[in-house]
Design a protein around this nucleic acid. Structure first.
Length: 227
DNA sequence: GCGACAG
DNA sequence: ATCTTGTCGC
């Protein structure tokens, strides 16, 4: 149904991104925003698996409605700028199990704040033809001034004279988040929606819950003290 | 050639 | 991303 192609080389991967970037639309293009889904991918290094988690919630109360997960073997290395090719297979697998249809996707990673403007959030948005926002915990590319230390303060993420994202302090005294639109919404809307998803944590609810699920919970040995 | 480098 | 104990703060 989708059209994800697994490249056989780095150059081919970059060529795919150059091709897909032409489909990105950065203006608000959706009629309703009732549900939002957070997407994140964790890894099980030992078994060579990528574990994708998607949590759908209501924009009203930010309470989860549905959660799906999927594990698939990783066949693409982590290469800065090509993260999408490593994580999307697991994401698409998890997506197959999703019953509800979220109005928008919030992805852990960059939207257009990418060397070729095709971060994983943009890639997912284009593949699904759905609005998507990139929420990254660190910078991939671009320059910026550090925003104030209080929640809500922000600064522009620039690539030359082009604004590719917003550096947002999502909580007092914690490292800022890097927000960038991925597809079918504007920079301003991407930030507005992210702000609406913030509660008392650093990460917005969609990504925060997906992140929690994607962590491959280790079979931690309980400290059982026998008397 | 030398750094930088989402997860 | 993941590996990891203690430790600071609400």
């Amino acid at each position: 149904m989708h059209r994800f192609y697994m490249p056989k080389s780095e150059s081919e991967a970059r060529a795919i991104q150059e091709e897909l970037r032409r489909e990105i639309r950065l203006f608000d293009d959706f009629d309703k925003l009732e549900t939002i889904a957070g997407i994140d991918v964790g890894y099980d290094i030992e078994n060579g698996l990528a574990h994708a988690s998607i949590v759908t919630m209501s924009m009203d109360d930010l309470k989860p409605i549905e959660a799906v997960e999927a594990s698939v073997p990783v066949d693409f290395p982590y290469i800065p700028g090509l993260l999408a090719f490593r994580e999307i297979p697991a994401v698409l697998d998890a997506l197959d199990g999703l019953v509800t249809r979220p109005d928008l996707f919030m992805v852990d990673g960059q939207g257009i704040a990418h060397p070729r403007r095709m971060g994983i959030a943009a890639h997912i948005g284009v593949l699904l033809n759905k609005p998507a926002i990139g929420v990254a915990k660190s910078r991939l590319t671009g320059r910026y001034d550090m925003p104030g230390m209080h929640k809500g303060e922000q600064s522009a993420l620039m690539a030359g004279s082009e604004q590719i994202g917003v550096v947002l302090r999502s909580k007092d005294d914690v490292n800022p988040l890097f927000i960038s639109p991925g597809h079918r919404l504007s920079m301003k809307t991407a930030v507005d929606i992210t702000l609406r998803c913030l509660t008392r944590f650093k990460l917005p609810e969609p990504t925060r819950l997906a992140d929690k699920l994607s962590k491959v919970r280790p079979v931690k040995q309980m400290t059982l003290l026998s008397a």
